[in-house]
Design a protein around this nucleic acid. Structure first.
Lengths: 237, 237
DNA sequence: CAATCTTAGTGTAAATAGTACACTTAGTGA
DNA sequence: TCACTAAGTGTACTATTTACACTAAGATTG
């Protein structure tokens, strides 16, 4: 049963945070998953990066900490989107021993506050070496059965991501600092699941002050190189 | 400190739900508040209806139960919108004794999952008699200092309500079953804080299949009576 | 070095949606 | 019957969205 909280820094046994980290490699939208430590008896299961909330941190701080600890990612777009609290959401974990590595009672109920974040996959890949075998970028259309209710959480995050994409300009977070208009268009097409017209897409961007053209052009492609752009946050203007 | 959970139905000491219930009386947008039981030493404080989540219920069930127990409201639009987890959010309660009426440790940390809901104030008023002195409908522009971080929660709910109003047709939930187009327009004007053009507002509604005109007209007004409409949910079509 | 391949980049016409704006009508009450 | 109040209605103008096809720049190959 739940243990007494004797120290202010003891983990709160009832609340966790989970992060759905989206990345884009110009072809597919991917989600960062971690492999749970396999204690031997059961096949390994994948899960979202997450951890219990500590007694003295708020939810945003917990999510930021988890992301840093498990993936070394810092300073990225991170947004709380929904809290999941079904009493049975723990049941889907095959290896209860694994749960015991961070919770006293593996059957205890845990409510999780879910966040989603967006990273530039390109920027992240060089660093990924240090997590070899632990961190996996999985295309969103090929997600296997995950631990807990994490499949549900990923689906909800996707739904929310699409909503945000339709109304706000958060796409830039998934692209490298310097990007082409085709990359931006492909990203929108993949996230929203639609085909867009090149000229209309560009026309709409002309009325936006959030992207600025560089003098620079794309290199290393075997066709006409495209102009590069950077994102200029509105809050800086 | 937190007590052990010895029964499956024991309250979970770490998670609560709070409901921001919006109502509209054709003049002002209001929020339902309850008066905390005054234990004498401190002035009474108002708070949102809320309670700890029980061990065997999920979050939506908890919110539904709380709303029913504290306000007798059932079967209404109820939507989770944000979870609040600042470690200090309990500090703003003046009367710690009052906290003890439902929590063992009044200083313990509680994370709350906030919901908002919309009710037809008209329908609700007759029932309100049974809660005299406990339930208060407060205009959103005259909210006093509330317990916990409930002022922050109300503000976030308002923000979210406005967002939903701009994109979805949820306004009908705040109106009586039979409403006039002027009532619907006034509601939009008050929630969004803007003045709308009568003809343009009606023109847009013509392209919507969600409201249908009745044969019936308004009664009891000292001017030309308006036609009445009802909302026809899209999911029923 | 000419031909070919690939993606970049560009404009216009038609349809749709949004905005601004003022008078007549139906009922109540004095 | 006159005055008051809110209901109800149309048109011209502007802005936004949609559909659609060719030329340009660089890389590769024979």
């Amino acid at each position: 049963m739940a243990k007494s909280i004797t120290s202010l820094n003891a983990p709160n046994p009832n609340v966790s945070v989970d992060c759905v980290v989206f990345g884009f490699d110009n072809e597919k939208l991917k989600v960062l998953l971690i492999e749970q430590r396999n204690t031997g008896q059961f096949e390994a299961q994948l899960a979202l990066p997450g951890d219990l909330v500590l007694e003295r941190e708020n939810l945003d701080e917990a999510a930021t900490r988890v992301l840093k600890q498990l993936t070394h990612l810092e300073g990225i777009y991170l947004k709380q989107f929904k809290t999941f609290g079904d009493p049975n959401r723990v049941n889907n974990v095959k290896d209860k021993e694994w749960l015991r590595t961070f919770r006293e009672d593996p059957a205890a109920r845990v409510i999780t506050v879910a966040y989603y974040s967006l990273v530039k996959l390109e920027d992240y890949l060089p660093e990924a070496a240090s997590f070899a075998g632990k961190v996996i970028w999985q295309p969103v259309d090929e997600i296997p059965a995950l631990a807990f209710d994490h499949n549900i959480i990923v689906n909800e995050a996707l739904k929310r991501l699409r909503e945000e994409f339709e109304f706000k300009n958060i796409g830039y977070e998934l692209l490298p600092k310097k990007f082409t208009l085709s990359m931006l268009q492909t990203l929108h097409e993949i996230v929203l699941g639609v085909k867009l017209d090149k000229r209309n897409f560009r026309k709409k961007l002309k009325n936006s002050t959030t992207i600025i053209a560089l003098e620079e052009k794309q290199t290393g492609v075997d066709h006409k190189p495209a102009q590069l752009f950077v994102y200029q946050s509105k809050t800086l203007l």
